[in-house]
Nucleic acid binder design. Structure first.
Lengths: 331, 331
DNA sequence: CTGAAAGCGCTTACAG
DNA sequence: CTGAAAGCGCTTACAG
């Protein structure tokens, strides 16, 4: 274990003040070329690495951001996280990631931790920021961006337009004269209440079909094949389903086979996230395609701007989506 | 944006010195009860939260650890990460997570970042620590634990005994008189070179069968169904396969159907990680079962001990595994 | 172009 | 049981 070399050691060895070393490190242009080179050589020879904690205390910037994620094992969020991490690294930030499980108490604890650690900003994914989260970040003036997440307060965010996407998927089935089930986690989640359900209703209206609330199914994020909801879907009058999550969709698909249904012959499915399981399933699952990596990447990019106090012109970004037809739809 | 309240503000309002406030915060027992209560009330009234960056600089402990993960979207590693995060939170640590992509340059950059941020320890997952990683952590005296990862230097680690598990899976097939393929990412990875291949050979030896290197297949982590390796497996003399990754196994399964094979009737598969895709597949995939969450959790627990300079008696831990037979094996 | 000095917000001997 | 003071390793006006 070698002794840590500090800025003082460099200053001594280079015969300059620590201020000058600091200037060199921070690429301050007004350092004489020779001085700079001498310092740089000493930095290299001594293998000096600045202590980011001390930098953080002195500069009040930690180049660390917090990322709150509902579930690291959920492919949807994991893909966003990769986009976040890549861009963060590109801009020289590190991410403190915390798995929230969408648990209010845990989220509150997480936000306290993150603020104590003086993160420069936070990317939030999940259901809804807690009251405490909102007030604490506001009081601290901490920048927050939502990724793959919407809320009722117009917080800067990056998403696809779920309302339009749900409309498109529903319309695809209605055009064929199918009865369409909408499968969501919970109708009270903002993303469902404000986007998916309205998009579904838009399509029904377009096709002059009356809304039947019995065709909205809530899984409560319980993707076990024993969840009775899956059976209920097939026992309903629906002949097709628009599903909010790929894991849910593959369970639904398998449940269909278990119940002796033919897919896509007598039941069709469009899922939402185009994660890898859609390609693993047999038949492969038709899906809305989202630029998952980009959602994370753009969210991080917006956050960097906010942390720099730059103007962010459009803070609620909707990226492009599409629908890819595979084996669970009939064209 | 409210003014930050510091330890000085608390000290003033409570009419004590900041040292006393610090003692109260740190649960130092030798503070008079009344003083303590007065300070506690002020802390609460002022909504004081200590600045962890300043604490980190003064105490030389950041209560932050680094986690290097090859791929956040890989269910195997994501499950370990959840175990790590949970135990970290329990012990009041936060994790800086960095996606390495198993890229040497990126890992080097990551380790520099983590050390600059003065992390108290690091959990490494992946192929192999880089030279730079090893020397930098050694020079810094930073504790390192491997999770789901082995190396040649006896670094503290948590795993299952892959050699024994591979032996068991291979033996299961040999007992039936099958020819067994071993499907791995790359035979030079330590986990394959030191565990899986020897375990496979152990089983062959046990059954008096000569090793045939043509039955070792390397996917190079390329899990696209167009990877020619998958087809080669079915064109070989193998009638069964022990596969290192669940994603690989499901692709192999699907490739089998594409090639007109019946599984498990004329080809059998055992995979390694029992992640959720094994249950999504049809037929469901037989698997070695690993306590993924626990691997991460125990690794984090060991790291906390090392960071506290406690004795760690057994620093290369092997947790229990089992084999669960599902639809891709015949019993 | 460079240095001396204050300050970031804490912890931790040391002294009493 | 409590306080004064030094120190953690930097950044950043300020002065020259």
């Amino acid at each position: 274990m070698q002794p840590k070399v500090t800025i003082y050691d460099v200053a001594n060895a280079a015969n300059v003040s620590m201020a000058t070393v600091s200037r060199v490190m921070n690429r301050n242009p007004k350092v004489k070329k020779e001085t700079k080179e001498r310092v740089l050589k000493v930095i290299h020879d001594l293998n000096y690495h600045p202590n980011a904690v001390a930098q953080g205390l002195a500069s009040k910037k930690t180049t660390t951001i917090g990322v709150i994620i509902p579930d690291l094992t959920n492919a949807y969020f994991a893909n966003l996280a990769i986009g976040i991490d890549d861009i963060a690294m590109m801009y020289n930030y590190n991410i403190i990631i915390a798995n929230s499980n969408e648990d209010t108490e845990k989220e509150n604890q997480i936000i306290d931790n993150l603020l104590a650690k003086q993160v420069d900003g936070i990317i939030y994914m999940g259901r809804n920021q807690t009251e405490h989260f909102r007030s604490a970040t506001r009081d601290n003036g901490t920048a927050v961006v939502l990724a793959g997440t919407v809320d009722e307060w117009n917080t800067p965010s990056v998403n696809i337009n779920y309302r339009q996407a749900t409309y498109d998927a529903t319309s695809f089935f209605l055009k064929q004269g199918q009865k369409v089930a909408l499968v969501i986690s919970d109708k009270n989640y903002p993303i469902n209440a404000k986007y998916r359900i309205p998009g579904y209703k838009d399509a029904l209206k377009e096709y002059g079909i009356e809304f039947n609330k019995k065709l909205i199914f809530e899984t409560q994020d319980n993707n076990s094949i024993s969840n009775p909801t899956f059976q209920e879907i097939y026992e309903s009058e629906a002949s097709s389903a628009v599903v909010y999550s790929d894991d849910t969709a593959i369970i639904l698909l398998n449940k269909g086979f278990e119940m002796g249904r033919s897919i896509p012959e007598d039941f069709q499915i469009i899922t939402s996230n185009n994660t890898v399981v859609t390609k693993y399933a047999r038949p492969t699952i038709s899906s809305i395609t989202q630029p998952l990596y980009d959602i994370g990447a753009v969210a991080m990019r917006i956050l960097t701007k906010m942390m720099n106090k730059e103007k962010v012109q459009d803070s609620n970004v909707y990226l492009d989506y599409d629908i890819i037809h595979r084996g669970t739809t009939r064209i």
